[in-house]
């Protein structure tokens, strides 16, 4: 069965092309769709197993990163998205897409959909940075996307990636419920403990990515689509690295899950 992935474009989304390539390399049939075309025909979502909200600067990060796109999705595609989640389908938000997901309340959705419970705000450094980080998947998380991964590297490229929860109760609910799918860590795979630059933005509990209770809806600040092959890696000229980049595994996990689930 062909797994179909839809990659959102428009209004300043700018990692759509490489996200489409990543899904294709992972075995999906991936298409890009402009947000306006989707709003004109929300039923189109039913044709897909996976939805990706890629990275970028939707609406220039104006007001707050991801906020305006989050509202537009919620107001104009809310019902279709709710159905998409209820149908057991998969979604990923990368960087700006992650910001969109938490701001529209698609993640972590502990108290139900479309209520913002956590946020991603300005890095403690106050600046946008492009740097590679080490990541540690949480084996206790039900996250579908981070299966079969050990400590791995990806680039982060953001100014507003500091993950914060509204209070300690919610943070504990995230931790206890396995919502924390991915954490920043040191080269040795040890917790970053908030220390820059291993934790590049001072996210609480070194959180780099979270999922919903099902593990199918996932968002992360680092860019898995930017490390799908060896040549992407900054030390490709000096270290023996596998031909395939670690980021590709995330896409493959989702495609394989969808293939099994919707067979």
């Amino acid at each position: 069965m062909a797994v179909r992935a839809l990659v959102l474009t428009g209004f300043g989304i700018n990692c759509d092309a490489e996200t489409q390539v990543a899904f294709s390399r992972a075995g999906a049939t991936a298409e890009r769709a402009h947000l306006n075309d989707l709003i004109d025909a929300p039923d189109r979502l039913r044709d897909y197993h996976i939805l990706a909200i890629p990275g970028g600067f939707s609406f220039g990060d104006d007001v707050a990163s991801g906020k305006i796109l989050a509202n537009r999705l919620r107001y104009k595609l809310g019902a279709a998205l709710k159905q998409f989640v209820a149908d057991g389908k998969l979604a990923i938000g990368i960087c700006n897409g992650f910001q969109v997901m938490v701001k529209m309340g698609l993640l972590p959705a502990i108290g139900g959909l479309f209520r913002q419970e956590v946020t991603l705000t300005h890095n403690e450094s106050g600046r946008f940075e492009d740097r590679w980080v080490y990541l540690q998947p949480n084996p206790q998380s039900p996250c579908v996307w981070t299966r079969n991964l050990r400590t791995f590297e990806l680039p982060v490229r953001h100014g507003e990636g500091r993950f914060l929860a509204q209070d300690d109760t919610l943070l504990r609910a995230l931790q206890d419920g396995g919502h924390v799918a991915l954490r920043y860590c040191t080269r040795a795979g040890l917790p970053a403990k908030g220390a820059y630059p291993a934790n590049p933005n001072a996210s609480v509990d070194d959180i780099a990515g979270i999922c919903d209770a099902s593990g199918r809806i996932f968002g992360l600040m680092p860019h898995p689509e930017a490390y799908t092959e060896r040549a992407h890696h900054p030390r490709a000229t000096r270290e023996p690295l596998p031909a395939e980049g670690a980021g590709l595994q995330l896409f493959r996990n989702a495609v394989e899950y969808a293939r099994d689930a919707f067979n």
């Binding site: 700018n14 092309a17 946008f128 492009d130 740097r131 680039p155 930017a226 992407h232 030390r235 000096r238």
Partner: peptide
């Protein structure tokens, strides 16, 4: 340079900063 996104489009091979610690 770190404040420029130099990897969007996922086509970057040799980056501005290189070596063991980039």
């Amino acid at each position: 340079v770190r404040m420029y996104d130099h990897e969007v489009l996922a086509q970057s091979v040799l980056k501005q900063f290189q070596g063991a610690d980039h």
